[in-house]
Simulated scan of single mutants.
Amino acid sequence: MNNSINLTHGSGGTQMHQFIKERIMAKLGNNILEKMDDAAVMENQKSSQIAMTTDSFVVNPLFFPGGDIGRLAICGTVNDLATSGAVAHALSLAFILEDGILFSDLDKIIDSIATTAKEARIKIVTGDTKVVERGKCDKIFINTTGLGFINEGISISSHKAQPQDCVYITGTMGNHEVALMKARELFDFSITTQSDVAPLNVAVNKLLSLTKNIHTIKDPTRGGVASALREICEHSQCTIKIFEEHLPVDKDVHAVCDLLGLDPLYLANEGKFIIIAPESSHSQIMQAFPQSSIIGEVIKTLTNNKDELLLETISGGMRKIRMLDTMQLPRIC
Rank of each mutant, 00 (worst) to 15 (best):
T239P: 00
A198C: 13
S56I: 10
E34N: 15
L200A: 03
C75M: 04
G66H: 04
D107H: 08
L28G: 03
S47T: 13
P199M: 04
E34V: 13
Q15Y: 15
S47P: 04
S48C: 12
K108C: 12
K130S: 11
T211H: 12
M318H: 08
V202H: 05
G146P: 05
V59D: 02
M318F: 08
I20S: 07
I122R: 00
L91I: 12
S112L: 04
M318K: 08
L262W: 06
C333G: 15
E297H: 14
A120M: 06
D258T: 09
S48R: 08
G10W: 01
T303M: 13
G127S: 12
L93F: 14
K139H: 14
T211E: 06
I101Y: 01
V167G: 01
D55P: 07
C137W: 01
N205C: 07
L28K: 02
V41T: 13
T53L: 00
C333S: 15
D250N: 14
V225Y: 00
K206P: 01
Y168W: 11
G135Q: 09
P290T: 07
F63L: 09
G76S: 12
E297K: 14
I332N: 01
G66Y: 02
I156A: 00
R222Q: 13
L93Y: 13
D307S: 15
M173Q: 13
M327H: 10
L186P: 14
K46F: 10
F243Y: 06
T129H: 03
M286K: 09
V249L: 06
G85Y: 00
I156T: 07
L81A: 03
T77D: 02
N31G: 11
